[in-house]
């Protein structure tokens, strides 16, 4: 609310800003509280973990980070996760966005049905689809020694291709894109059509530039979702060569052998790339239309 008032009355910035900053600071502090302990644990020597947790460890140490880095496969895991995630982010920024745009602005006969059918797949728990998807990965044609019909080899199992198989098009991204474009005016398209512009041109030259927040969102959510997934890599990866960061950190959470400090340190290390991606992209959430793009 204060946002609107501040903007509407064009008051000088600073005078209106501090209550907002105060509220945000308090909420941020509350939200981050669990991580304060997490970080504290990461710097607490392993033997003392949990017996003397305090805000600032009595004898802070980097030993846990060293342990986390030393784990045989964290480097492979980082590379694998980075490759799989980057490719998934790229495909997700194109394919679902295009589809979402079409569902919002270029309806065709039956498009609603198609839309709902596609979206509905997000409402089925992974437990049920895991095994069939695994069978598809194994029987993927022409991969991993398979013939055209998908038999004979191990298919996409234990490979980067297998890891990325379920992530290339996120159904929720289709939904998100449709909603985003639905919030935009159709009259631009109308005008451009009268001028003779092609549909793809209308999309790529008019709507896409206004959809920077959307692309930023899709990129961030795809990155987070793929980077953090555990169940699929657990099932499809069967050796170090296709391990991922989430698989790697379970090394410290092995039943009966939890290494708390190292687990927290590894979790922090593994979370950094996602936060960097977020930090870089978050500007995107507030650009776009608010810069006057609509008026053109």
């Amino acid at each position: 609310m204060t946002a609107l008032m501040a903007r509407a009355r064009r008051r000088p910035r600073s005078s209106r800003l501090w209550p907002r900053v105060m509220v945000l600071s308090v909420v941020t502090a509350l939200v981050l509280l669990p991580f304060v302990w997490m970080t504290s644990l990461a710097f607490t020597p392993e033997g003392a973990a949990f017996s003397e947790v305090r805000l600032i460890p009595a004898q802070p140490t980097l030993e846990n980070f060293a342990t986390a880095m030393r784990v045989a496969n964290l480097d492979t895991a980082f590379i694998n996760s980075a490759v799989v995630t980057s490719i998934a982010v790229l495909t997700n920024c194109v394919i679902p966005v295009l589809a979402g745009y079409a569902f919002a602005h270029l309806p065709f006969r039956g498009s609603k049905v198609v839309f709902y059918v596609l979206i509905s797949t997000a409402a089925i728990p992974v437990s049920v689809t895991l095994i069939p998807l695994f069978l598809m990965a194994k029987n993927f044609p022409l991969a991993g020694g398979n013939d055209l019909l998908g038999s004979g080899g191990s298919g996409l199992l234990d490979s980067l291709g297998g890891l990325m198989l379920p992530y290339l098009v996120g159904t929720m991204n289709i939904f998100l894109s449709r909603q985003y474009f639905a919030g935009m005016d159709r009259d631009f398209a109308e005008a451009a059509r009268i001028d003779g512009a092609s549909e793809f041109r209308i999309f790529s030259r008019i709507y896409l530039p206004m959809a920077r927040p959307l692309i930023a969102l899709v990129a961030v959510f795809s990155f987070t979702g793929v980077w953090d997934d555990f169940l699929w890599p657990l099932v499809v990866s069967t050796s170090e060569r296709s391990t991922t960061v989430q698989l790697a950190i379970t090394t410290f959470a092995s039943t009966g052998n939890v290494k708390y400090g190292a687990l927290m340190a590894a979790t922090i290390l593994v979370s950094i790339p996602v936060l960097v991606v977020f930090l870089v992209n978050q500007r995107g959430f507030i650009s776009g239309l608010s810069e006057g793009g609509l008026k053109g």
């Binding site: 991580f35 997490m38 987070t224 959470a253 687990l263 979370s271 977020f278």
Partner: peptide, 14 residues
């Protein structure tokens, strides 16, 4: 904004 997003990012195991 990044701080708010942290919970969404950090894996549940830890």
């Amino acid at each position: 904004r990044t701080a708010m997003y942290v919970p969404h990012v950090v894996s549940l195991t830890a």
